[in-house]
Design a protein around this nucleic acid. Structure first.
Length: 568
RNA sequence: CGGGAUGUAGCGCAGUUUGGUAGCGCAUCUGGUUUGGGACCAGAGGGCCGCAGGUUCAAGUCCUGUCAUCCCGACCA
């Protein structure tokens, strides 16, 4: 493509709305434009890149034996009403009515519709196993769309669903998708980590997330560099760590602690370490109130707590007036002694000795508290968030933590949708059996942002060759010099003939403008045609390198072709 | 949904405190000189100052409301 014929509206200045690198660069390089919060248009360069990502995903899904189909994004309410998710999604689902007043939604995810399709179309058990997928636009009315296409309200997703006769079959289908995902993200040039994920309210027997480590990631992940353990914060198993406590058989003692509320203030008041306190936090779980205890230097993981107690609604901090009613003290003085609600203590609390807790009386704490002597929690469980340096639950080495962008999620669903929608089959003996399902998602548009987050510098994007909108840019320094322009045209035509996506910067801009644009849009290979063209010499530079090398025309072309083909 | 901030030309911003002809840089268009890392000179076009009310002789500026966007948090199959 000639740049003079291509819409590449690059921006010199960073739009004020963008915060993270991928969002800024996609705007500046002319890949996307915003229509409304969380809704974007893809301009020619953005669409070209998007299509390349889609094609890699499509090739690998097909290779894994999945079949592509395409459903509408505009969906009737019935299937979601039957599965119960018409209510579960709440305000996150875009809803609308047709002219007759019938309910529709814009599909946020398609488990119900794929299940329905299989119910309608599959006649015999002999057709299983089967995996169906689509690459399609999804709609979720996010409470807070942000970071450009990283979390948007309209986005493109590859969603796949597997249907098996039994759980052994599901394991096999799941493994195929797992392997396909590894190939896909490798081909996309992403450095990814696979973590165990929380199954949560979805139930099922397992789930893993494909995470791209990045400071702008919205999820916390824990991983071990010694063994292969990796999990997200909600799933990571926390091993209790040993800490020193005062030795001896002390009796619990009430201490006046005026104006001391936070752990920091307690540390100063008692001249002790944060781990020598236990904090007691009150939560509202569905219709009841509970207390959760963790060591003073730890954080409660609310997802773990929610899963533990089987809370169906949101688990939220108790309102201050309820804290006062339950503890009979101001917020900041809650403790387990004498509390009449359920108390759930973290595993580490069980190892503490002679520690400090709130006294359920404004202005007082207890010191020398001991578990099972001064109070007895109703449950002791892993309810804290893992931290860097914790022992790996598998091998004991120190755990590392990082932020990650979730680009893929694979899930053993089990029978949730086949049960609620009635997807069964007759086996060889004429007996009715429930189909076992899995679901597998990739955030296609999010992959674009993730790829940029991992590949950019101060000058712009550095696309991996496999998804670069164009592979090579040919740039005559001065488009008015016939010799330069003619040579550039020839190089461009030769590259195209070899199947390379080539760009010709035929604009009569000054060289600086062209260099800046080429770097900004991140084309992997640059061939500059300058004054030495009289000697048949051009300049060859990779976007990842700082220096250019001079080559003959033929050599530059053949090197570029070889470089690109080796990385597709 | 809680907390914070911002809406002025395509983009980035000043002007709002103290009401009085709407500005700057970049981009765009014309002419000329330039051509190896975002050129220079001369000229030109482009605005319902987010929107709606109100106060005032007079509102970008003050008041009320409203909408939008961004950030932190909550939420996120």
């Amino acid at each position: 493509m000639r740049i003079s014929n291509l819409l590449i509206p690059t921006l010199r200045e960073i739009p004020a709305e963008a915060e993270i690198p991928s969002h800024r660069l996609m705007l500046r390089a002319g890949f996307i434009r915003k229509l409304a919060a969380g809704i974007y248009s893809y301009l020619p360069l953005g669409l070209k890149t998007l299509k390349k990502v889609e094609n890699i995903i499509r090739e690998e899904m097909d290779r894994a034996g999945a079949q592509e189909l395409l459903m509408s994004a505009l969906l009737p309410a019935e299937a979601y009403q039957v599965s119960g998710r018409w209510d579960v999604f709440g305000p996150a689902m875009f809803r609308l009515k047709d002219r007759w007043g019938r309910d529709f939604c814009l599909g946020p995810t398609h488990e119900e519709l794929f299940t329905q399709t299989v119910i309608n179309e599959v006649r015999s058990y002999k057709e299983y196993p089967m995996t169906l997928y689509q690459i399609q636009t999804k709609y979720r009315d996010e409470a807070r769309p942000r970071f450009g296409v990283m979390r948007s309200r309209e986005f493109i997703m590859k969603d796949a669903y597997s249907f098996d006769r039994d759980s052994a079959g599901l394991d096999e289908s799941y493994k195929k998708m797992y392997d396909a995902y590894c190939r896909i993200f490798t081909r996309l040039g992403l450095d990814f980590t696979i973590v165990d994920a929380d199954s949560g309210a979805m139930g099922g027997s397992g789930s893993q997330e494909f995470m791209v480590k990045s400071p702008v990631g919205e999820d916390g992940i824990a991983y071990c560099n010694k063994c292969s353990y990796a999990a997200n914060y909600e799933k990571a198993v926390c091993m209790p760590s040993e800490k020193p406590f005062p030795e001896g058989d002390f009796d619990i003692e009430k201490v006046q602690t005026p104006n001391v509320h936070t752990i920091d203030e307690l540390v100063a008041f008692f001249n002790a370490k944060p781990h020598m306190f236990a904090k007691t936090i009150l939560y509202k779980a569905d219709d009841k109130y509970i207390a959760a205890m963790v060591r003073g230097d730890r954080e409660i993981n609310e997802v773990k707590l929610k899963n533990l107690i089987g809370c169906t609604d949101d688990l939220v901090l108790a309102e201050p007036h309820m804290v006062r009613e339950i503890t009979k003290a101001d917020v900041g003085f809650a403790g387990p002694v004498g509390l009449e609600i359920e108390v759930i203590a973290d595993l580490e609390v069980a190892q503490m000795k002679n520690f400090i807790i709130g006294a359920n009386e404004t202005g007082y704490h207890f010191k020398n508290a001991n578990i099972n002597k001064d109070f007895t929690p109703s449950r002791i469980a892993d309810i804290r968030t893992i931290e860097s340096g914790d022992a790996c639950p598998r091998c004991g080495a120190p755990i590392e933590t990082a932020q990650g962008i979730e680009v893929g999620h694979i899930f053993k669903l089990g029978t949730k949708y086949s049960d609620s929608l009635g997807l069964t089959y007759l086996d060889e003996n004429g007996k009715s059996q429930t189909v076992i399902m899995g679901c597998y998602g990739i955030g296609v548009t999010r992959c674009l942002a993730a790829a940029i987050e991992q590949n950019y510098d101060e000058n712009g994007i550095i696309w991996p060759v496999s998804i670069a909108p164009y592979h090579v840019i040919v740039m005559p320094v001065n488009a008015k010099e016939d010799a330069q322009m003619q040579a550039a045209e020839k190089i461009y035509e030769n590259l195209k003939a070899a199947g390379i996506d080539a760009l010709l910067d035929d604009r009569s801009e000054r060289p600086g403008v062209k260099f800046k644009d080429a770097d900004l849009i991140g084309i992997p290979v640059r061939i500059v045609v300058g004054k030495k063209i009289g000697d048949g010499i051009v300049e060859y530079k990779l976007r990842t390198e700082n220096v250019a090398v001079e080559k003959t025309i033929d050599r530059a072309v053949s090197d570029a072709i070889e470089f690109v083909k080796a990385r597709l």
